[in-house]
């Protein structure tokens, strides 16, 4: 199963990742307010995640990490573990 993690404590709720996710697996959580005072984006842990990383590409705060089950080779510059 592919997945992403979002560091919600630093999220400013711009929702660019919500726009980017074609499977609609990310949403802004209106119930929560982080320490910065924003409603953060949350990942629904849906099995439909393709690990496309479009959300990570567009996150201006660089808060999203993307994991894949069957990993293709990552870009060198992304410093993947």
């Amino acid at each position: 199963m592919n997945k992403i993690t979002i560091r919600e404590e630093r999220c400013k709720g711009c929702a660019y990742c919500v726009l980017a996710c074609k499977r609609e697996l990310i949403r802004i959580d209106p119930e929560r307010i982080n320490n910065l005072g924003y409603n953060p984006a949350v990942f629904s842990n849906g099995e439909a995640c393709t690990g496309c990383a479009l959300c990570a590409e567009i996150c201006p705060e660089v808060l999203i990490e993307v994991f894949r089950e069957r990993g293709k080779v990552a870009l060198k510059w992304q410093n993947a573990e």
Binding site: V62, I64, E65, V66, F67, A74, Q78, N79, A80
Partner: peptide
């Protein structure tokens, strides 16, 4: 599970 997108080290 492989991390394919992360913050660059710099």
């Amino acid at each position: 599970m492989q991390k394919i997108f992360a913050r660059p080290a710099t």
